[in-house]
């Protein structure tokens, strides 16, 4: 599984990254976490409001910070 956090590096993006990290750790799933900061790459996902959460290439949320609990549900 591949989890990507899209965002240009604002505090919100870091918060989302931490939540995702926590979710992955708690579920003990084999997932690769990646921060995507390049604007062209972010645009390629069609995302306009950062931070956004992408799981296996699919945009799950944008413009908000889902909690670790909410991310767990999305992973499962």
């Amino acid at each position: 599984m591949k989890i990507q956090i899209l965002g240009t590096g604002c505090p919100k993006c870091n918060q989302l990254y931490q939540n995702a990290q926590q979710a992955v750790a708690e579920l003990a799933v084999d997932a690769e976490l990646e921060k995507v900061t390049d604007l062209n790459a972010i645009m390629a996902f069609g995302v306009m409001v950062t931070p956004a959460l992408v799981i296996d290439g699919q945009v799950k949320t944008s413009g908000k910070i889902p909690s670790a609990e909410a991310i767990k549900e999305m992973i499962q």
Binding site: T8, G9, C10, K12, L39, M43, V47, M48, V49, G63
Partner: peptide
């Protein structure tokens, strides 16, 4: 409005 979103938004609208 969050200023960190203004660029993706600008580009998304432009696109």
């Amino acid at each position: 409005f969050c200023s960190c979103s203004s660029i993706p938004l600008f580009l998304g609208f432009t696109q």
